[in-house]
């Protein structure tokens, strides 16, 4: 019972704080007569969701689908590259400097040029998300493939197993917890990537709305977008978390 109660408390207490903060926010701004375009009140933000000219569902989907497509590409390429650089010394030597170079280059800096090279379309936006998310997946996956119990490798090899068997029976399953750690970092990064891409060029999406709310001084639209971004970000993170738990019932954090 004590446990059940503390479980509920973990949700209730922050919610009470939220309600208090919203009240302070609302009445504080009214009292100080802060103009709407500097900081909107919670009520104004709520009203922003009912702005007739904005299709929130469609714009959310635009940003979400860019993030998802980039995330998927990043996962496939990240995992694939990790396998390649772990299994081949030659390719590791050849590719590592380029992979690191791609990572140290600030993605925001190259974003405008990506559009020139790949065109002002979704491909560029997805590519930008991909650039931002593939690295944590690659690094974590590569670590998971190498950071194995050498005893297990000795055990398999003493029974005549080859590299492929070692890879399939030891390295690959061993890498799963590491992969999911990488996926969690990248899932949140994917939303960042999509917004950055939309800031540089877009005709729809939450990044587009935020940018336009700045031009039109309609800040409550930006705040409404933030709320959606938080919800979508949490959703994506939870999906990864849940898939991890389903894929690895054997996993307990040490």
């Amino acid at each position: 019972m004590a446990n059940g109660y503390s479980h509920i408390r973990a949700y209730v207490e922050p919610l009470i704080l939220l309600v208090v903060l919203l009240f302070v926010w609302q009445f504080g701004l009214e009292l100080l007569q802060v103009p709407h375009f500097i900081l909107p009140t919670p009520v104004q933000i709520a009203q922003a969701f009912f702005t007739p000219s904005i299709d929130w569902l469609r714009n959310t989907w635009v940003t979400f689908s860019e993030a998802l497509a980039g995330f998927a590409t990043g996962t496939i390429v990240g995992v694939g590259l990790a396998v390649v650089i772990v299994e081949s010394k030659l390719l590791r030597r050849l590719l590592t400097p380029y992979i690191v170079t791609a990572q140290v280059l600030p993605k925001v800096a190259v974003a405008p040029i990506i559009y020139i090279i790949l065109g002002f379309n979704d491909v560029s936006r997805i590519f930008l998300v991909f650039l931002l998310v593939f690295f944590p997946i690659l690094i974590n996956m590569a670590t998971g493939l190498t950071d194995v119990d050498t005893n297990l490798i000795h055990l398999l090899k003493s029974l005549g197993a080859g590299e492929l068997t070692v890879f399939l029976k030891v390295r690959l399953p061993n890498s799963l917890p590491y992969l999911f750690d990488g996926l969690k970092i990248s899932a949140t990064g994917a939303m960042v990537g999509a917004i950055v891409a939309e800031f540089v060029s877009s005709s729809a999406g939450l990044g587009f709305i935020i940018l336009n709310s700045q031009y039109t001084f309609n800040t409550s639209l930006a705040f409404a977008s933030f709320i959606i971004l938080i919800v979508v970000g949490l959703f994506l993170y939870e999906v990864v978390e849940l898939s991890g738990r389903l894929a690895m019932p054997w996993f307990q954090r040490r």
């Binding site: 005893n151 000795h154 030891v170 054997w250």
Partner: peptide, 11 residues
């Protein structure tokens, strides 16, 4: 083989 650790496959 038996090693210093149990060295089981946790998966």
């Amino acid at each position: 083989f038996m090693f210093q650790d149990a060295s089981l496959m946790r998966w």
